[in-house]
Write a protein that binds this DNA or RNA. Structure first.
Lengths: 158, 158
DNA sequence: ATCAGTGCAAAACATTTGCAGCATG
DNA sequence: CATGCTGCAAATGTTTTGCACTGAT
């Protein structure tokens, strides 16, 4: 069940790297970083905006969410994942590859669930060495249906 | 390398399945199917429209491209891949899992290159069995830089 | 005080949908 | 000749951009 990691250290890490890169401390940026630091899996831009608006404290305009996301992605502090349905999702990248994971996507309820597998990582690295291509990152998405939607509910009415 | 497969059989296969599903033989549909049959890797909706307009014969409206894509995807005759950059790409699915492959994406020139790896497939299936999730499909994308863009050109100016 | 950071509204895309006319079975 | 197929144009949804204002250094 997506192990609720919560890594405030990442927020500090990200803030430092941003400062190193010459960015100032704006409120919208901090709010997005703090929110992302508290997640255990990827959020869409809309979900980020929504969560910040509900969170009590600091509503952040959609445009700012996208701008912060863009900065963080360029510094490789977050990674973008594309699981279909036309939207991008973003999640913290922890230094040293800790908590590196991939995603199960329920095509019925659109839920995104993280999973880790060391053997898969080893295999991917072996493949990366084998191809005539300089591999920097990899993304693995398993589509199907989650427990809630029933092990047989792959096909959907929507 | 992308081995220029060209499988006219797939066009027939797809046409049959569409007929079975009660579809007629419209010109736009045939044109899209024929084009996809001639590809060795995934095309975007825009590339499909463009290719058909240039191809000499049968321009197909964007809406029709999307409609045909949608029909083919629902019948699992093509698969949708998302490699970032905000667009979807589509490619023929060959019966029996033949020519099943994954993708290398050059983040410099945005080229998409197919690759196959049996060990990776075995590992993925092992993972699929292990998770509490009913896995129907999987998608693997390796990001980096292709030969043309230099084995060290992962970072990009654009 | 300066210049980066932010919000709002409009623009730019990819994709979807409504509807009128064309063509297949 | 009826119904499905197609094209056009408008709608939708996500992401980006322009510009004026706010706030950090």
């Amino acid at each position: 069940m997506s192990q609720e990691l919560k890594q405030p250290e990442w927020a500090d890490h990200a803030s430092e790297r941003l400062a190193d890169a010459g960015y100032r401390r704006g409120g919208a940026r901090s709010a997005v970083i703090d929110l992302l630091a508290r997640q255990d899996c990827a959020l869409s831009a809309f979900e980020i905006e929504e969560a910040l608006r509900a969170d009590g404290g600091r509503p952040v305009a959609r445009a700012s969410v996208y701008r912060v996301i863009d900065e963080l992605e360029q510094l490789k502090l977050i990674s973008r994942i594309e699981v279909g349905h036309g939207i991008s999702r973003y999640e913290a990248v922890h230094p040293g590859g800790h908590h590196h994971h991939h995603h199960l996507v329920c095509d019925a309820c659109e839920k995104v669930i993280p999973f880790e597998d060391d053997e898969l990582e080893r295999t991917i690295h072996r493949v990366a060495d084998r191809v005539a291509f300089d591999v920097a990152e990899h993304e693995i998405v398993l589509h199907g249906s989650c427990g809630d939607c029933g092990p047989r509910a792959s096909r959907r009415s929507a």
